[in-house]
C-alpha cells in the first residue's frame, strides 16, 4: 500500500482572529512536507455532514522550527477559516485537545523555484480569506531572500472589523506589507489592485488568492503589466482527491487528464497560472 494521507489530528491551539475567523494549529506531521498553496480536507464529526471542508495550509512547522514549548513535539500546521455554514460552524466549536480527521496535503501549490522567482519583483495579493495560503508562501520565500529583487504583500479586507488578521504575521517575516479596506476604514481605500497601483510598486510576478472577481481582475492587471500571475482558485469539492470531478475550472487549452477544457481544482490546482484558466 502507498502512504496514507488521512490522519486524526489534535487541535494544538485555537486563536480568534476576527468575527467568525479562526486560526487552528493541528498537532501532526501530516503536512510536514507540504508546499505553500496546498490544502487539506477537514472532516466534520456530525454524521449529517459527510464531506470534508477544503482549507488551505497557512503555516507548517517542522523539527527545524522549535517553538520552545515543552508539550510540543515540533510537527504542526495551521489553517485559517471563516464560519460560512454549518460545517465550518461545527469546526469552530472545537477546542485544543479535540481531534478531527484530516486529509492532505492535497493539490498543487504556488511554484517558487529559482527559475520562477529569480530576479523578480514579487507581489502577493491576498483578498480576505486569501491571505492564509500566501503567508505560508511568504515564509518559504523569506528563507532565500537573495533569490528575488523585492517582495511585497498587499492584504485586502472588507473593513476594519476584520482586524487586518494575519497582517502582523506577514510583517513579522520582514516583508513589506500594505493593507487596504473596501471602505477605507483602515489602510488604503479600495481593493488590493487599487492599493498596489497607489503604492507604485512594480510587479513582475504575482501570487494571488481571494474571491473570484478579484482573481479575474488580477489576471487582467497582470496581462496589462506584462507580469506572470499565479492564482489560487476556490470551488466546491466532494472528494478533494480528483475522483468526483465536482471542482473543475475552465481552462484555455485542453487539460491532459480530463481530455476536455476542464482541470480539477483539487488536483491540477488549486493554484493555476492565470493565463491557463478561463476566468
Amino acid at each position: 500500500m502507498n502512504e496514507m494521507i488521512r490522519k486524526k489530528a489534535k487541535i494544538r491551539e485555537k486563536t480568534y482572529l476576527a468575527p467568525d475567523i479562526y486560526r487552528y494549529s493541528f498537532l501532526t506531521d501530516l503536512c510536514s512536507g507540504a508546499e505553500p498553496g496546498q490544502f487539506v480536507m477537514i472532516y466534520p464529526v456530525n454524521g449529517a455532514r459527510l464531506l470534508g471542508r477544503p482549507l488551505c495550509i497557512a503555516d507548517v512547522s517542522g523539527e527545524d522550527n522549535d517553538s520552545g514549548r515543552a508539550d510540543d513535539p515540533g510537527h504542526y500546521f495551521d489553517i485559517v477559516f471563516r464560519v460560512v455554514g454549518g460545517g465550518t460552524e461545527e469546526i469552530s466549536g472545537y477546542n485544543p485537545g479535540d481531534e478531527l480527521y484530516i486529509e492532505g496535503p492535497l493539490g498543487h501549490g504556488y511554484p517558487f523555484d529559482e527559475k520562477t522567482i529569480g530576479g523578480k519583483n514579487i507581489v502577493m495579493l491576498g483578498g480576505g480569506l486569501g491571505a492564509p495560503s500566501l503567508l505560508f508562501l511568504a515564509k518559504k520565500l523569506m528563507k532565500a531572500p537573495s533569490a528575488f529583487v523585492s517582495l511585497t504583500a498587499v492584504l485586502g479586507y472588507r473593513d476594519r472589523s476584520m482586524n487586518h488578521f494575519l497582517a502582523s504575521d506577514f510583517g513579522g517575516t520582514g516583508i513589506k506589507t500594505i493593507i487596504s479596506t473596501d471602505d477605507g476604514s483602515e489602510g488604503i481605500r479600495g481593493n488590493v489592485i487599487d492599493a498596489l497601483e497607489e503604492s507604485g510598486i512594480k510587479a513582475d510576478l504575482i501570487y494571488a488568492c481571494g474571491p473570484l472577481p478579484m482573481l479575474s481582475a488580477v489576471k487582467r492587471y497582470a496581462k496589462e503589466a506584462g507580469a506572470t500571475a499565479y492564482i489560487s482558485l476556490e470551488e466546491r469539492m466532494a472528494c478533494g482527491l480528483g475522483v468526483c470531478l465536482g471542482c473543475v475550472a475552465k481552462t484555455t487549452e485542453k487539460d491532459a487528464h480530463s481530455g476536455v477544457k476542464n482541470a480539477r481544482v483539487c488536483t491540477e490546482g488549486p493554484v493555476f497560472c492565470a493565463e491557463t484558466v478561463d476566468i
Partner: peptide
C-alpha cells in the same frame, strides 16, 4: 464530454 458548469456539488 465536458460536463456541466460549476458549482457541480453541494452537501
Amino acid at each position: 464530454w465536458e460536463g456541466n458548469p460549476t458549482p457541480r456539488v453541494t452537501e
